[in-house]
């Protein structure tokens, strides 16, 4: 075990960096995309709401593997017919894929959170003279956020794991680096235990963080 670690750690550490960067960036962009898509849906903005629905439909209805291949290999081909010099790195294509994926699921998570805030509080806020916008921002979203923390963290965990799929487009994340290593050393057993351990540590940290945030936010609830 230790031997494998000593031999592989520089490769694995490089992979870890890429995995963490891609996951973090995709989560941040995904939150933004998800929020926009969700607000468009909830506010029933004409035309845009159809786009948002189509977006969620396509992402949920196709495997991420296919999306990644499409975005990395498929789209640039088409773009090159207009812009012959166009290229895209695996990292950028990977982050786009992951963000769009996380965004679609987060959009649904946010929407269910918003719908869980009872309409009575919204009516109370409106009856006091607050606009629909302020009511959304100050009454609904803070409470919706609280309700959705467990599902949010769950989605973050999925995004971290999904970075491994991006191996197929050549992203140099930890699984890719591990495969490079074992193709020379053949120590599959040890190497993939280390890789698995890495995911376990990161995801356990997210779970602990989630419990902590839930506790912090539940100051206003019983129990």
């Amino acid at each position: 075990m230790i031997e494998t670690f000593n031999e592989a750690h520089s490769l694995l550490l490089q992979g870890i960096q890429v995995t963490v960067k891609a996951a973090l960036l995709s989560i941040v962009i995904g939150i933004f995309v998800g929020l926009v898509s969700c607000l468009i849906t909830v506010a029933r903005i004409p035309v845009l709401k159809w786009l948002a629905a189509a977006y969620v439909w396509v992402v949920r209805g196709t495997p991420m593997l296919v999306q990644a291949l499409f975005i990395y290999f498929g789209c640039p081909d088409v773009i090159r017919t207009v812009l012959p010099s166009f290229t895209v790195t695996p990292f950028i294509a990977g982050v786009i894929t992951l963000s769009l994926n996380a965004g679609a699921y987060l959009s649904e998570i946010f929407r269910s959170g918003i719908q869980a805030v009872n309409t009575g509080q919204i009516e109370a806020s409106r009856s006091l003279g607050l606009s629909a916008f302020t009511t959304m921002r100050k009454v609904v979203l803070p409470q919706a956020f609280k309700i959705t923390v467990p599902s949010l963290v769950n989605q973050f965990i999925i995004t971290v794991k999904d970075t491994s799929i991006l191996t197929v487009i050549g992203l140099k994340e930890i699984v890719n680096m591990a495969r490079q290593h074992v193709s020379i050393k053949y120590d599959y057993f040890e190497t993939f235990i280390w890789v698995g351990a890495f995911y376990l540590v990161v995801i356990s940290a997210l779970m602990v963080l989630s419990k902590f945030v839930e506790k912090k936010l539940n100051y206003d609830k019983k129990g």
Binding site: N118, G120, Q121, E123, A124, S125, S127, L128, V139, P142, Q143, K146, D220
Partner: peptide, 12 residues
């Protein structure tokens, strides 16, 4: 001002 049957206080 409006007062509702279910109070509708901001629970947070």
């Amino acid at each position: 001002g409006m007062v509702f049957q279910q109070f509708n206080l901001f629970t947070n």
